[in-house]
Simulated scan of single mutants.
Amino acid sequence: MAETTSQAEALRARRPLSPHLQIYTPMLTMMMSIMHRITGIALYAGTLVLAWFLIAAASDARSFATAAWFLDSIVGQVILFGFTWALFHHLLGGVRHFVWDAGYGMDHPEREWLAQATLIGGIVLTIVVWAVSYFLR
């Protein structure tokens, strides 16, 4: 027996909707996954800045002086600091995903520890690299 239009509409009305972001409770692993994607995009922009610097270095002295002046300015230093953090955060996020792909760290406490290690490790490694580069100037 074929369904009537009203029965089909009633069935559709009872089906659950796909969950939306408003009903999810933000978790650290979810935020780290989002940050992994954002840092991946930021690395593209940072690579363009790095390519500009290398092309300027290979061109002439005036182009290099312009690129060096910009990267030595406050804005340039903030961009380089953010690029360094994005690089380390994305790297550690990739290591975290590699550990998960190997079948480890999927249970509750390990999953949170890996997410915390990604966050803290990216910040610590960035500060260490910038501190070393500051003292080697």
Rank of each mutant, 00 (worst) to 15 (best):
R14L: 14
L136G: 03
A42F: 15
D107G: 14
R96G: 05
R111T: 08
A115K: 09
I127K: 02
M31P: 09
A68M: 12
G82T: 06
D107Y: 12
L21T: 05
F64A: 01
I74W: 03
V49M: 11
I41N: 07
A57D: 13
M1H: 12
V132T: 07
A67S: 09
M1G: 08
L71V: 00
L125C: 15
I79M: 14
F135E: 03
T39E: 05
T25I: 08
L114T: 03
E110I: 08
A68W: 15
A61K: 01
I55N: 04
S63C: 09
H36M: 15
I55K: 07
F135K: 00
A67M: 02
M106P: 02
H36C: 10
S6W: 06
V75K: 04
R15T: 06
F83A: 08
V75Q: 02
A51I: 15
F70D: 02
A58Y: 13
Q22V: 12
T84A: 08
S59I: 05
V124K: 04
A86I: 09
A8F: 14
D101N: 13
W130S: 01
T84F: 13
S133N: 02
I34N: 06
A131T: 14
M30T: 11
I123C: 04
L71D: 01
L119F: 14
S33A: 15
S6V: 02
G105M: 15
I79Y: 00
E3S: 11
G46Y: 00
L114Y: 11
T29D: 01
L114C: 07
R37G: 03
G105W: 11
A51F: 05
L91Q: 07
F70T: 07
R137Q: 04
V95F: 15
